[in-house]
Design a binder for these strands. Structure first.
Lengths: 212, 212, 212, 212
DNA sequence: CATGAATGAGGTTTCATTCAT
DNA sequence: TATGAATGAAACCTCATTCAT
């Protein structure tokens, strides 16, 4: 991916007609297909257009450049995961720590593991998109959501909720990624799901104890 | 007219004269420099050769292709980190859990954080090299080292040491990476260093409790 | 970073718009021009594209690689010669040996000599393409055509028609090539045309006699 | 093979010491080996040197450039074949046509077929060396040898001996080459050996008859 | 004499992007 | 709007040849 960085990542035109919406989604979906079948390295705009059943020209009508396309795909995924995570957080407000962590972590792992192939492919996109700030902003949002949830744990006062939330997120996301990339067997995923809960539960409790 | 293909990652020729040893290292070093200054995407063999003060031809005398170069650089880094980790593990044999974890985790975080820029750049290489098995094999080695260490904790019998070791590694490496990639301020790194210890300590203890 | 390999000689895409048909032919023609003016050794895809008045990229839209281009050019030539030869063979069914040979040989020599420069240039391509089977398959076809023709000679039964046909072809093609490559003056070509007929006539007759 | 044509094809230095002679021959032999195992396209000076067990530098001490090396190899082969042919011609002076042709043709075919692989590889070199005049001059010599032989046939006066000799040579060499390149099975070679004799015998006789 | 490290022009091929139809 | 032909910069890699050691 050559030349300039981050020219315009915004979609070029907002599809108003139904037909266009279909096209836009077909392209995004095709991008994922190509990602899975060919890898990032071999994902080309032409190839994506082909898979989507449109011409390159059409692709460029909706996405100003390749980065914007990749970005849109990544964003959709992140949005989905973030939404699931947020919901789980909100549902957990006021629960005791153990239940809260269990609910949230399982929601996250399940979201990521639903399509491990897609998740992995998207890690590569994220790397490719590197500095792009929006990727981080997604993290920010989740960060705040978790932070707010942690503040509702009954009878607990964390020393530094902000940091604790950050740490929990990093563990959750980082560990999951690591397992995924090392080649996740179903058994391993199951273990991860259970022990990531354990991990965060004991961590948060020790944070609390520590605080006391 | 090309015709053939050879996808070896092995260095092409072992330098016999003193002069060439210098060259080989200059190239590897230059690769890191370019990685940092331009990013993976803009790392070209020509650019690396230029930076190293040699011609492309020379580069290709020692590395059969670009991948091999990147691989060599990554391998050197991984070897270093692995070596430090192994040492810490061996030094910790027989220590009580808390001390053991503290020693090992701190060694790992320090190794990774010594040059955050290099570490981050190498994550991208690792992504690029994707499937390459050797990357995984490094993980395997560390895995065994940690497993063996865990078996020496006095008075503790883990339900499934293999998995526990795997989990600890994933947490250690994954969380560190996540923090790094989200943009690590020195303060954050300090917090990570401390809390990653906490995290693993409490996890291992709860694993143990669980077993009982 | 390359990674894959595809060594198809098949044209990459069939032109659908009128414009591109023109382009494809311009490129093939340019290839011959370059072949004549620079020689195989100095025929580069860039040079061909330049001569054709298009960009390299365009060339690669229609020919997946250099070999495919050379192959296409060679094939066109061989097809033409083969077609002329086949026609002459068919027209000669049932003729007495002398007339038959005269008709066929003259058709062949005339086809090859129409553009001696092109013929010679293509010998080099054929060498370059070496093993490529299609080159041989052209020979096969002609072989059968000649064999079938020989079986129609009235009052003659060859001992081993298959071999006789093979021998006749080898003589016809080989001798012509030899003369061509040794530097064919018009006078020499004229002599060849006449004596190659003589050669094959007397050979076939002696084969027949031999059989009797 | 780039840049200039035909700078100097003469060996750079005439080896005076025994050791050098050995080296020179080892290199020439290695060139043939590489030719057979890798093909012309992949014959590089470095590869030849390696195979010969010397350094490239050494190779360049004896051959001023790659062309000169190839040329030397080709020349050696041609010289050998030419010598055998000449001897056969001289031995045949004064014989009747049939015996003469049989002796000469069989000598030629046997010489070429002794190492079909080498013969074929050398055709490619000859193509590569293209215009180089010395290749032709070898032909000239043989031409004269044959011509002189033909003039000794008892009781025969050819209309145009020069041309007849040329034609015989072209047939002999061309047909052999054609069979060789189309993939010569031992059976085919045997047939060629016999029928090439037949071919030339009947041709020469009909030439003679013609003259009368 | 021999070595082999270094050179760098030059070749092939890809792919994001534009624009006439 | 959609198409897909055209573009061309830029990447990777090779290999004949030289020259310091």
């Amino acid at each position: 991916m050559p030349v300039e960085m981050q020219s315009t990542l915004e979609p070029r035109k907002t599809p108003v007609q139904a037909r266009s919406t279909v096209t836009v989604e077909a392209i995004a979906e095709a991008a994922i297909q190509v990602l899975l079948s060919h890898g990032v390295e071999r994902l080309t705009t032409t190839r994506v257009a082909e898979r989507a059943g449109v011409s390159v020209g059409t692709l460029y009508q909706y996405y100003p450049n390749k980065q914007a396309l990749l970005f849109a795909v990544l964003e959709a995924h992140l949005d989905k995961v973030t939404a699931l995570l947020s919901r789980a957080c909100e549902e957990s407000h006021g629960l005791p720590i153990k239940a809260m962590v269990k609910h949230v972590i399982e929601a996250f792992v399940d979201a990521k593991m639903e399509r491990t192939d897609v998740s992995m492919a998207l890690y590569k996109i994220a790397a490719e998109l590197g500095g792009v700030k929006v990727v981080r902003s997604v993290g920010e949002r989740s960060h705040r959501t978790i932070e707010q949830m942690l503040m509702t744990v009954p009878g607990v006062q964390f020393e530094d909720v902000k940091f604790t939330a950050r740490m929990m997120m990093a563990t959750m996301a980082g560990t999951t990624r690591n397992v995924l990339e090392a080649g996740a067997t179903p058994a391993l995923v199951k273990g991860l799901r259970k022990h990531l809960v354990l991990l965060c539960q004991s961590y948060l409790q020790s944070c609390n104890a520590h605080a006391v």
